[in-house]
């Protein structure tokens, strides 16, 4: 290659590398601040600031959703597998909100480490399945669990 072109090529590579390093460093420094939400473990460990508007997310624990009979008040527990977080909310929940699914709530954590949410969003996973396939998978899963239980009983 022509020496001048080679020099320009080196300059171009330098620009790309320098920009990537700078942007990468900024992203690294943003670190946790760039997270959209805190996990229940982080809140249990006191990593989330109290009294400030934050977001928390996790899997909605099966059987934890309690709805008030006469209002839109609802309480549920989310988990990240290690810690639990109780969330209280008054309002409509998204269609995809369900037990066993992920949800993200925005609000403030009170002194009892309960998140008083002003907004609840549903987080969905990257898997897509037709209803019949999902049903078949659930049935197979239940059968297996039943088998395991029977084996355990014997």
């Amino acid at each position: 290659m022509h020496p001048l072109r080679k020099q320009r090529l080196q300059l171009v590579i330098l620009i790309v590398v320098a920009a990537s390093v700078v942007v990468g460093l900024v992203a690294y420094m943003l670190g946790q601040n760039a997270n959209y939400f805190y996990t229940p473990s982080q809140i249990a460990a006191g990593e989330a600031p109290g009294g400030v508007h934050i977001r928390a997310g996790g899997m909605v624990v099966a059987g934890s959703v309690k709805r008030a009979p006469d209002s839109l008040d609802v309480q549920f527990t989310v988990t990240d597998g290690t810690s639990l977080l109780v969330i209280k909310h008054s309002g409509i929940l998204p269609d995809l909100f369900d037990e066993g699914e992920a949800a993200i709530a925005a609000g403030t954590v009170d002194d009892n480490l309960v998140l008083q949410a002003t907004e609840v969003l549903a987080k969905h996973d990257e898997k897509y399945t037709p209803p019949e396939v999902a049903d078949a998978m659930n049935q197979a899963y239940e059968r297996k669990q039943k088998q395991n239980q029977e084996q355990y009983a014997q």
């Binding site: 992203a27 760039a34 997270n35 959209y36 939400f37 969003l121 996973d125 990257e126």
Partner: peptide
């Protein structure tokens, strides 16, 4: 993958 996001990971 790097951060907790509302958007799901790649399919």
């Amino acid at each position: 993958d790097w951060w907790y996001t509302l958007h799901q990971p790649a399919t």
